[in-house]
Design a protein around this nucleic acid. Structure first.
Lengths: 339, 339
DNA sequence: CCTGGCACTCACACCGCTGGAGTGCCAGTT
DNA sequence: AACTGGCACTCCAGCGGTGTGAGTGCCAGG
């Protein structure tokens, strides 16, 4: 029994099953793929594959269905990289080139991915923890309030309103502004907290409440956990996967509504071969996603990976296609954010 | 045949059907509700109700099911206002009182509604067109860029970055800042465009490009259509409505993913009795929502209605409960935004 | 090591049947 | 005039039985 052919059989099973959504038998296999051997031979291979846990039968005398382990093997060793069609490449360009700011890039990317893969698309906002401070601005408003604005190198703008007692002197503000920027401009957000902690001591006692309030506002903007955001699109695609999947749609919807769950998945998964990571079924380690897979890739801003984007769909998905789409989009987004 | 009893029968049918999800027959009706007459009499009433289009049979020799028209009648004339339980009232208070800013209020409200009604919850951000300008601020950043910030009375903050050639003089900025605020502070956003249109002419020719750029940025912030935003929660609840509804889940997901559709629905529907508006099934005039209903109410900021919130679910929903929840939450949100 | 053949299994579709819930109608009662 | 009990009728839903076909495992022979 040739090891090579056995894997070819596994590949054929995965491909056929993804396409037809029905358990695939030995006869259909030799008919659709030119394997050059008889169904009986295939059956032997299948029995071996089943022993090794790559495929399973829903019931005796039915065809075979890939297991999570089978998909994993397919993704790791059997699936070639399917290049995108020119039309798809064009779609990526035309859709993303029109983006005007970071919000726009993110939402457009999400829609694009959903459309391209016909799955649920997830795009994570550039993570605050890895980005750096471009500028901090203080704006005194009428009514004794102060607007504290934090701008990151990824283009993200966080603002907080600080109530004060009485209007602060512009000279104090100017001093604080310049000290702040001197301290934190260009530094990573994760470092900022430490850098500004004892800033108050450099000011006259009378001004310290003001300084402390500003520091507090800034720290609030930095609260990374709270600000890890993701955007979704294409949830309606979940209903496009046949009645059997639609019945287990509830848990999946719950999982993706819990953004925390998705964030955890994304941040914990690395990039595999070709810069694309895949989690299959139970590998997600989440009850609602037993029948779902996630295909994801990091994207960069100014040469450094800052966040991830992904598609989510049934384990029975077209991995080659989705991996190609995710990779292409991630690269294109990185190129846009490079500037 | 008493007209009064006929309506009582309709009410009973709606209530039973909502609860059991099964067509309701004459016998079950007299058993569960003390109508004081025999099944045969009920049958006569039912025949009449069917003639008038309030109920229908899925097939001969099955029980009756309310039509959209039947639900409409139920909502308009038959459904009492079911007061919320103390536990629910407490839930509203504790969840909403912790909100720190507008974003927080909106997301908390959405989650709360979804949890309270076990339906899909929709909350619209305070509409820009109805809110007023609190303040406009200009901040010169290093690198010859200018940050234009617009703050509304609802607490919403819009910012735009404007690239310039060369650093502008602070004196010009100050003049522009004060002229701008003088012109637009306290005015409705809808008026702003007209108010600032010819501001450039009040400045020296050399400064006009700057002024025009700022005006453009402001106008961009005002682009209302683009900025009508809504937030969703509880989409997973769509899967909780029995297999028959889950199969038609796709179109519904599509519809609610198209935020434009929802916005149109919300803005076009008025408040009915008790400040709550209801759209039932085909009344939504949207293909994907034939089997869905929307229960919605406006909420106010500083005494004026600025946006709407809603829940969306199958036509076969508990209207009394959902209307009560929507009304209560809308009132509570209005109270929070009053300050 | 592959293949054709063969016996075996089992989901699924089809069929006919029946029970029961529900209806509409009508004649009788109040 | 309104209600009721009775009755005939309809028709969905569930059930057991059956056959068929796809699929399998195994084995003996090439």
């Amino acid at each position: 029994m040739s090891e090579e052919r056995k894997l070819a059989v596994l590949r054929a099973i995965v491909e056929d099953y993804v396409e037809t959504r029905e358990p695939v038998g030995s006869r259909a296999l030799v008919e659709r793929h030119s394997l050059g051997v008889s169904p009986a031979t295939i059956r032997n291979d299948m029995a071996a594959l089943e022993d090794e846990g790559y495929i399973a039968q829903p019931h005796t005398s039915a065809g075979r269905v890939p297991t999570d382990k089978g998909y994993r093997m397919f993704v790791d060793r059997l699936s070639g990289v399917k290049p995108l069609s020119p039309a798809e490449k064009r779609a990526i360009q035309t859709l993303l080139d029109g983006a005007v700011d970071l919000d726009d890039v993110v939402t457009r990317t999400t829609r694009l991915l959903a459309q391209l893969t016909r799955q649920v698309a997830v795009v994570q906002y550039p993570s605050l923890s890895r980005s750096t401070v471009r500028h901090v601005e203080l704006v005194a408003l009428e009514g004794g309030r102060l607007l504290v604005i934090l701008i990151t190198n990824t283009g993200r703008v966080e603002q907080r309103m600080v109530p004060l007692n009485g209007d602060p002197a512009e000279s104090v503000l100017a001093a604080l502004r310049s000290r702040l920027n001197q301290a934190v401009a260009g530094r990573r957000l994760a470092e900022v907290r430490a850098l500004i902690a004892d800033l108050a001591e450099q000011f006259a006692p009378a001004d310290r409440p003001l300084v402390r309030a500003v520091i507090e506002a800034l720290e609030d903007s930095l609260d990374i956990e709270r600000e890890e955001r993701i955007v979704l699109a294409g949830t309606a695609n979940l209903a496009r996967h046949g009645p059997d999947f639609v019945l287990s749609i509830g848990p999946v919807l719950e999982a993706i509504e819990e953004h925390v769950v998705l964030l955890k998945l994304l941040t914990e998964m690395g990039d595999g071969a070709g810069g694309v990571g895949v989690l299959i079924g139970s590998e997600t380690a989440h009850t609602g996603l037993q029948e779902a897979s996630v295909v994801s890739s990091g994207y960069a801003s100014q040469g450094e990976v800052v966040a991830r984007l992904a598609v989510l769909g049934p384990t029975r998905m077209d991995y080659a296609n989705n991996m190609a789409a995710v990779r292409a989009v991630a690269r294109y987004v990185s190129r846009i954010l490079a500037s």
